[in-house]
Amino acid sequence: MIEVKRDNDPRLEDPWYQTKLDLAGQIYARLRLLFLIVRSDEIPNDVNARLKLIADRRHTEVTLQDFDILRTIFLGRQMRLTYAEVVAALGGGPVGASKVAAFQVRRDLSIDLSDELGEDSLVNFLGW
């Protein structure tokens, strides 16, 4: 889990917000998951562009039916499919891509963004 913060985010000076982030870190540690807080100006431009593509679609509406589609397509597939497969299952085109991004932001999916996002990018289902 990576929490990206702008360097001018006023919440970074708020002790209550810092406590919230600390508690989140403790919970992720107990789940044996990495939790990092990164300033946006520390992220390389190419990576930032990939993250922005996902974040800009975060408000896309997804339904319980969409979630059921995810569970169905990932069932028995070792929890990993390609980006193209998941987009197609969720309606294809811009609608499917937006739903994939929304599920990424909601932490139901995890897209490998270590390289440019493409049809063969790997997608993991986290929503069990």
Rank of each mutant, 00 (worst) to 15 (best):
L33Y: 04
Q78I: 11
K52H: 12
N48S: 13
L70N: 09
Q26E: 06
V38P: 03
A49K: 08
L64W: 09
M79R: 02
D41I: 12
M79D: 15
R50I: 15
V47T: 15
A55P: 07
A89P: 11
A55H: 13
V62D: 04
G91A: 08
L34V: 13
V47A: 12
T72C: 06
R71S: 10
I37S: 08
G25M: 01
Q26N: 05
T82P: 00
D41Y: 14
I69L: 04
G76V: 03
L53C: 11
L90H: 06
D46G: 05
R71H: 09
R58K: 15
L36Y: 04
L90D: 07
D66Q: 04
N48W: 02
N45F: 08
T82A: 13
S40L: 15
I73Y: 03
R30P: 02
R30M: 03
E85R: 04
L64Y: 14
K52G: 04
L90C: 07
Y28V: 04
T60W: 02
R30F: 06
L33M: 12
L64E: 14
F67W: 08
V62N: 09
D68C: 15
D41T: 13
R50D: 07
I69R: 11
G76Y: 08
E42G: 00
I37A: 01
I73Q: 13
R50S: 09
T72P: 08
T82K: 12
I73L: 15
F74D: 08
V87Y: 10
F74E: 10
V87I: 14
L51G: 02
Q65M: 14
T72A: 15
F74T: 10
V62G: 00
L51H: 07
I73W: 08
E85T: 02
R39A: 13
G25R: 01
L90Y: 10
L33T: 08
L31K: 14
R30G: 03
R32N: 13
Q65H: 12
R39D: 01
R32Y: 02
E85L: 06
L51Y: 09
F67Q: 12
T82C: 07
D66H: 11
L51Q: 10
T60N: 02
A29R: 01
I27E: 09
E85Y: 08
G25Y: 00
N45W: 00
I43R: 04
R32M: 07
L31D: 05
D56R: 11
T82H: 03
L51P: 05
Q26I: 00
F35Q: 03
Y83S: 06
A84S: 12
L36I: 10
I43T: 09
L51S: 01
L64H: 14
T72K: 15
L51W: 05
T82V: 01
R39F: 04
I37H: 01
V38C: 09
A49R: 12
L90K: 00
